[in-house]
């Protein structure tokens, strides 16, 4: 089986995909409004803010207020996109999200940039790697974590169409842009990036590219890897994952997140219940991040192609 080729058409940050889509959504639908807590440029929301000043709310450094104002704006039919760094729109405002958005089933899109270790130099205070867990535990909440610029743009359009609370997670650094701009994006439907026979690699966010790189390296070792892009962590595409594992017999999960509460944890739960099979996780093992450049941090924290490769070899041996 030959590996499917993916070409990096030019590295771009995923947050810019969000920003472009938000501007476009603003043009398409005047119910779309946006809020930001003093990070408008970082979130790439400035084009929207400039184009639609009457629909953009700068709340200042007050995320709790922002989240609940967003909930209030839905009462009146608006579709609010509330943005900040992942840390500040999850952990900092968990109870606000829980009561006013999730439990109240409000149509708010929580937009989280600078997620994960690749936030880089700012260090652990800003590098949240618990956010997927926090958000996926909330009933009614959808959790989406796209892999590149094109997919983040597509995901932003998709979450706008979905009625209900959404956590949309993206990142800071420029990363390879390799999915097709017209690739269909359906919430809750994993994308089969590469067919393989020996091991499944289920990756989310920035780690999808690393998974594809690992797949090339595995091919050289004679191991055929199937790669799933799990852009939606909740609801999880159980069918796609189980179908793949029934074929390959083992799985590696890869994410820029803690092991506790992340994608690997969701898939482990699925396997234990429905189809026990060897599983290894590429994720952060119960420690905080630190300052550094994104690429060197990924390596240090075991979140790169090399580590996915090592885990794949390990999990295949466990079959």
């Amino acid at each position: 089986m030959n590996m499917k080729e993916y070409i990096n058409t030019g590295s771009k940050d995923t947050r810019s995909g969000f920003g472009e889509a938000l501007l476009e959504l603003g043009k398409q639908d005047d119910r779309v409004v946006a809020l930001c807590a003093d990070l408008t440029g970082s979130l790439k929301m400035d084009d929207f803010a400039n184009a639609f000043p009457e629909r953009f709310f700068e709340v200042g450094i007050a995320e709790a207020n922002m989240i609940c104002i967003a909930a209030g704006l839905t009462i009146g039919g608006k579709i609010p996109f509330a943005g900040s760094f992942a840390n500040f729109v999850t952990g900092r405002v968990y109870d606000q999200i829980r009561q006013c958005i999730a439990y109240s089933d409000k149509n708010v899109k929580i937009c989280a940039s600078h997620a994960g270790i690749t936030l880089g130099e700012d260090g652990a205070t800003h590098q949240i790697m618990e956010d997927i867990g926090l958000m996926k535990m909330l009933p009614n909440m959808i959790v989406v974590n796209p892999c590149d610029f094109n997919q983040t743009k597509a995901a932003t359009f998709a979450v706008a169409k979905h009625r209900g609370p959404v956590y949309l997670r993206f990142g800071r650094p420029k990363v390879p842009n390799f999915t097709q701009p017209d690739m269909p994006f359906e919430i809750g439907k994993a994308i089969l990036m590469n067919e393989g026979a020996d091991v499944t690699i289920a990756a989310t966010g920035h780690m999808v590219w690393h998974a594809l790189e690992a797949t090339r390296m595995l091919e050289a070792k004679g191991i055929s890897a199937e790669v799933l892009d799990i852009h939606t962590i909740k609801p999880l595409d159980k069918e796609a994952i189980l179908n793949s594992i029934k074929k390959t017999g083992c799985i590696v999960t890869a994410e820029e997140h803690m092991m506790n509460g992340g994608l690997g944890d969701s898939i482990a739960q699925l396997l234990c219940r429905e189809f026990p099979a060897p599983l290894e996780m590429v994720a952060v093992d119960d420690r905080f991040g630190e300052s550094g450049q994104p690429d060197e941090l990924l390596k240090k924290f075991g979140l790169d192609a090399g580590h996915i490769l090592a885990m794949a070899v390990k999990v295949v041996a466990r079959k």
Partner: peptide
């Protein structure tokens, strides 16, 4: 909207008032 965990209602009401203006 749900309430009970305190301190959130004024923000929610503010959001709803902004929506009325829009």
């Amino acid at each position: 909207v749900a309430s009970g965990s305190l301190g959130m209602g004024l923000s929610v009401a503010t959001g709803a008032a902004l929506a009325k203006k829009l």
